[in-house]
Amino acid sequence: MIDFNSTGFVKLSPWDGQQAFEELAGVLLPGEQVLLAFKGMRDSVTFTDRRLVALNVQGMTGKKKDYTSLPYSKIQAFSVETAGAWDRDSELELWFSGLGRVKFNFASGVDVRGLNVLVSERLL
C-alpha cells in the first residue's frame, strides 16, 4: 500500500482516459469505466465509476508497480483547494475510514471543482 504520509502525488496533470484504461487493464473490473485520470512524472491517480486507483511506479526500471484501490464508499470527508494568483497548484484531500487523509496535488490549470462534483456524485 502506498504511504500517503511520506509519498505525495504531486503535480498531477490530465492524462488520457484510454491510456489510463490500458495501464490499469489488469486491475479494473469487467465493465469498470475510467472517468478521469491524472499523471505525474511516473505516478498516477485514476477516478473510475467505482473507485480511485493510485498507481505508484517503483524502482529504477519502473517494472515494479503498486496499485492502491480507494473505494468511494470509504470516503468520510473531502476538500478541494483551487489555485490562486500566487499558488497556482490545486489540491484534493480525501479522508478515508481506516486510512486517514490522502492528498493529491494538481498542476496549474486543473480545475479541481470538477473533481469536487465527481466525488460528490459518488458520495452524496
Rank of each mutant, 00 (worst) to 15 (best):
G8W: 11
F9L: 10
F9V: 06
V10K: 15
K11G: 12
K11H: 15
K11M: 14
S13I: 07
P14W: 08
W15L: 07
D16A: 07
Q18G: 11
Q18M: 12
Q18I: 11
Q19K: 13
A20T: 02
A20M: 09
F21Y: 11
F21W: 10
E23N: 09
E23C: 07
L24H: 01
A25K: 15
G26Q: 02
G26R: 08
V27R: 05
V27N: 07
L28K: 02
P30Q: 10
G31F: 08
L35W: 04
L36N: 08
A37T: 00
K39T: 00
M41E: 14
M41R: 13
D43S: 10
V45Y: 01
T46S: 07
F47Y: 06
F47A: 09
T48C: 06
T48Q: 02
R50Y: 11
R50M: 14
R51G: 06
R51Y: 08
L52D: 02
V53M: 06
V53C: 08
A54L: 08
A54N: 08
A54K: 07
A54W: 01
A54Q: 06
L55K: 13
N56I: 09
N56Y: 12
N56E: 13
N56L: 13
V57W: 00
M60Q: 11
T61V: 11
T61E: 10
G62Q: 09
G62W: 05
K64F: 07
K65V: 08
T68K: 11
L70E: 03
L70D: 01
P71G: 09
Y72V: 08
Y72C: 08
Y72L: 04
Y72F: 15
S73F: 09
K74R: 14
K74Q: 14
I75N: 05
I75W: 06
I75R: 05
Q76L: 15
Q76V: 14
Q76E: 15
F78K: 08
S79C: 12
T82F: 09
T82D: 14
T82P: 04
A83I: 03
A83L: 02
G84A: 10
G84K: 05
W86E: 10
R88D: 03
S90N: 03
S90D: 01
F96N: 00
F96C: 00
G100E: 04
G100P: 03
R101H: 04
R101S: 12
V102S: 00
V102F: 04
V102W: 00
V102Q: 00
K103R: 15
N105Y: 10
F106D: 01
F106R: 01
G109A: 06
V110Q: 01
V110Y: 05
V110E: 03
G114M: 13
G114P: 10
L115S: 01
L115Q: 06
V117W: 11
V117G: 01
L118T: 06
